[in-house]
Amino acid sequence: MRTSRLISTGAALATAAVLMSAPTGLAATAPAPDSAAKNNLVVSPNPVRAGGTVTVSTTACSTRNNATVHASRSGIPGVRDIGLSHDGRKLTGKLRIPVGTKPGTYRLRGNCGHGGSGPTPLYGAVTVKAPRAAVE
């Protein structure tokens, strides 16, 4: 009797550990899979409120290249991929966060264009703040 109770308790704890480690959604996820050191996309301002526009930039790509940020895969509803172009110092582009976007941190990924040593993966994140409370 005691052995079966210990096995049941152990199985329950193992199941709970697996369930707690499972991802719960797309929006509130870490910006890069392995470490923050991979974050080579700079998002400014960050955080931003829904309806705002951010500048996304990187110095990780050769200035002879362009880059694409796959914003449509971020979990932010209604956004499209954006192209980053050379501004003299780095590659930059604009991303508008649609009104109604839920607060959370959204992962951004992309890649540098081909040239030199080939495509370079890009990682970053944008955090959307809750809307301001209406003043009555």
Rank of each mutant, 00 (worst) to 15 (best):
T59P: 02
T59D: 14
T59E: 15
T59Q: 13
T59H: 07
A60K: 13
A60W: 10
A60F: 11
A60H: 10
A60R: 12
A60D: 11
C61E: 13
C61A: 12
C61K: 08
S62L: 14
S62C: 02
S62H: 08
S62N: 14
T63G: 09
T63W: 00
T63Q: 10
R64H: 07
R64V: 00
R64A: 14
R64F: 11
R64M: 08
R64L: 13
N66I: 04
N66S: 15
N66E: 15
A67C: 06
A67D: 12
A67R: 06
A67G: 11
A67T: 10
A67H: 09
A67I: 09
T68M: 14
T68R: 13
T68D: 13
T68A: 13
T68L: 13
V69S: 07
V69N: 07
V69Y: 15
V69E: 04
V69G: 07
V69L: 10
H70K: 15
H70I: 08
H70N: 15
H70T: 12
A71W: 10
A71S: 11
A71V: 09
A71G: 10
S72Y: 05
S72H: 09
S72R: 09
R73E: 13
R73M: 11
R73Y: 12
R73W: 12
S74N: 06
G75T: 03
G75I: 06
G75C: 07
I76N: 05
I76H: 06
P77L: 05
P77M: 00
P77V: 01
P77G: 06
P77T: 04
P77C: 04
G78D: 09
G78H: 03
G78Y: 03
G78R: 04
G78E: 03
G78I: 03
G78L: 03
V79M: 06
V79A: 05
V79W: 04
V79Q: 01
R80K: 15
R80W: 01
R80E: 10
R80Q: 14
R80I: 00
D81C: 05
D81A: 14
D81V: 07
D81H: 06
I82C: 02
I82A: 04
G83P: 02
G83N: 08
G83D: 07
G83A: 10
L84V: 06
L84C: 06
L84S: 01
S85T: 12
S85H: 00
S85Y: 02
H86C: 01
H86T: 01
H86D: 15
H86W: 14
D87H: 03
D87K: 00
D87G: 02
D87A: 03
D87Q: 00
D87R: 02
D87I: 00
G88M: 02
G88F: 09
R89T: 10
R89D: 09
R89Q: 09
K90T: 02
K90R: 14
K90I: 00
K90E: 15
L91C: 04
L91N: 02
L91P: 01
L91I: 03
L91G: 03
T92C: 01
T92L: 01
T92F: 01
